[in-house]
Amino acid sequence: MKTLIMGLETSCDETAVAVVEDGCRILSNLVSSQTDLHSRYGGVVPEIASRKHLEMINPLIDEALKEAGLHYQQLSAFAVSHGPGLVGALLVGVSTAKALSYAWEIPLIPVNHLRGHLYANYLTGATVKHPYVGLIASGGHTDLLYSSEEGEITLLGETRDDAAGEAFDKIARSLGLGYPGGPAIDSLAREGDPAAVELPRASLGEEGRFDFSFSGLKTAVLNYKNRVEQKGEEVNLENLAASFQQAVVDMLVDKTIDAVLHKKPASLLLSGGVAANSLLRQQMEERLSRKAPGVFLLCPPVHLCTDNAAMLAAAAHFQYREGAKAPLDLNAIPDLAVSRTS
């Protein structure tokens, strides 16, 4: 029998609904992005995000069913991300999912948003081989993970301050490049020299071997800009963007490859909005083929790297097979750890 799961995603600033068959085939995948609403504030405003989610989610549910060509009675289960994320935003998805699964009498499966990102790789048609090392780099997270077998995911390291995407946003804002910062810096950096400005790469010692830190880099970029401007000179934005991007990519690639050499996995999975960065993809591939040529690299297409609900439905498929079911008092957990499914 086919498993048809509808996923709901409202953890940050994307309202998303999708229907996925058997954890791997996308029947519909709708994302309503709020980027425009938040761009004038230079970052996501939680209250604005929550209000917009409430407005968007119900019509998206109707549309996702219609696009999948399904009646709700054909659905096997609902999936909702209940953390980590912005609590007010998550609550719109959780409340909606609980009430709708109650009305439709289909089980609800709580999905960890971070785990969801990894399962975006199950939607690409490729087979995910265990064990794997996973890197999730986005506006909200920078995590290195390890999965020994299906459903077993542990945290190897995480960011101690800003997430990688957050660092892109903050630097873009202070360089006057607008929001979101990732694409803006990515395209400007193409015109610049990545070796032009010397910037630090944080090393956190043996204890923080797989942890990340981007705050020192951020300060270094801002100090550099101030120094140049104080001399009355103009900052070469292309060079600065290219050098900054190179530093972020170096840190992500170094730690990830170190984790691969340490854990000797069968595959390496990338995901999250920053995994859409062209330089990161290219350099990760290059380094992996040099240092660990047997390891299989998986990276979803851009629209599955950023927040979406298909990835949640894919993750829920495996939990569904094990009989997972959310209780009626399911709550949003803003700081839900990746090792936990609920």
Binding site: I57, D62, V92, S95, T96, A103
Partner: peptide, 14 residues
């Protein structure tokens, strides 16, 4: 929002 989301989903579903 918890109340309104719940009422919206219940009436949508039913």
């Amino acid at each position: 929002r918890i109340g309104v989301s719940t009422a919206r989903a219940l009436t949508q579903g039913l």
